[in-house]
Design a binder for these strands. Structure first.
Length: 324
RNA sequence: GCGCCGAUCGGAUAGCGGCUAUUCCAGUGGACUGUAAAUCCACGGCCCAAUGGGCAUCGGGGGUUCGAGUCCCUCUCGGCGCA
């Protein structure tokens, strides 16, 4: 089976990935000497998959798409939880369609986990999310969760690092898996629940382009972008999301908005009068910077990424000329 | 000028005379296999023959004490009050 070539554009937030992707899409035909008729873009952003989260996520507009087809945008209601499994499934479908149509699939986004899940074809266990169980367990302290897991799946529990063994979200998922598998076979559970590290046979041949900036410049860009988002109606967007359906809103609860993180988290706090607008701006700026840092921590592990700076479009196109 | 209060890591804070000076935020580094913009972890003075050890440290100086961030005196700075 032939591997499907893939262009992956990634990097921390506020580095201009979306614009670059569109620009590259326009040059694909020429760069590949007609091998591809064009390109389509698949967004790899865990928040832009939600309908209505536009300004706060910096979602690309129809106009900015310049006619290039985008996938994985607005595919889920923000009231529901989208996850990596759905992302992987949707994306795999999109990739094969794009590829069959003689176009180059471009994955563009900042959610490293989502990108890796697809490109490295990560094999997830088939134990489904159990919201009721999660809710019940979320009351418990990490130490309690850990001892539960130790009983259910000692092998998995022993494999956890210090970070995960104190991480309620991870512990709950581990318990969920252990319970799900033990329904069928208790003995198999321990083995099956441990993630495999052996690489799967890869179906894709990725070229990674990363956009990166020095911290100081990135901080400035983040701050400017935040002010622009506010000017563009970010606050009104959140008000509208919280409105009841009858009033034309989505009836998005404050709790859910909080869980969406960053912009929406602080917007939820602002609209409940928990913080002032000034506080929101200050806190959000540091939070977005920290987010960018976490993104980089993830990307650093991938040595296949070719790093560029925003604005180096010509260099990037030149780089791609010999590779696609 | 007098009185009162305060001065502890980049910021904010805890600290009855007795072990290793607390916590939060920020910062730095990291983890991540079905919530990933989420969630979580580690580190935070200096020096060394570094899985250990040594020396510091609570605005400055002095004192009391076996022992001081903590008590006393004094100086400096800041806040409040009175002049």
């Amino acid at each position: 089976m032939n591997k499907i070539p893939l262009l992956v554009i990634l990097g921390p937030t506020a580095t201009g990935k979306s614009d670059l992707a569109v620009n590259i899409a326009f040059h694909v035909k020429e760069l590949s000497h007609g091998f591809y008729t064009g390109a389509e873009i698949i967004s790899a952003d865990s928040r832009q998959v939600y309908k209505g989260l536009d300004i706060g996520t910096g979602k690309i507009t129809k106009l900015e798409m310049k006619g290039v087809k985008h996938h994985l945008l607005d595919v889920c209601s923000p009231r529901k939880i989208f996850d990596v499994i759905q992302f992987k499934k949707f994306t795999e479908n999109a990739i094969s369609k794009i590829s069959e149509n003689g176009k180059l699939p471009i994955i563009c986004g900042g959610t490293g986990f989502y990108i890796d899940a697809v490109v490295n074809n990560i094999n997830f266990t088939n134990v489904q999310a159990d919201q009721k169980l999660r809710e019940k367990l979320s009351e418990l302290r990490p130490t309690r969760l850990l001892s539960m897991l130790q009983k259910l799946d000692p092998v998995r529990a022993a494999k956890l690092n210090t970070s995960d063994s104190k991480n309620p979200v991870r512990l709950i998922r581990a318990i969920e898996i252990a319970k799900g598998l033990s329904k069928y076979n208790r003995k198999v559970a321990a083995l099956a629940a441990v993630p495999t590290t052996t690489a799967q046979a890869k179906e894709y041949e990725p070229i990674y382009i990363g956009l990166q900036l020095d911290r100081e410049t990135l901080t400035k860009r983040i701050a400017n972008r935040l002010m622009k988002r506010i000017d563009n109606g970010m606050i009104e967007e959140a008000i509208n999301l919280h409105k009841p359906m009858k009033a034309g809103g989505v009836n998005l609860s404050w709790k859910r908005m909080e869980a969406l993180g960053l912009e929406y988290r602080y917007l939820a706090r602002l609209l409940q009068n928990k913080i002032s607008k000034e506080e929101m701006i200050t806190k959000l700026n540091t939070e977005i910077n920290r987010y960018a840092k976490r993104q980089m921590t993830w990307f650093k592990r991938n040595e296949a990424i070719h790093w560029f700076k925003p604005g180096q479009d010509d260099e990037i196109l030149k780089f791609l000329r010999t590779r696609i």
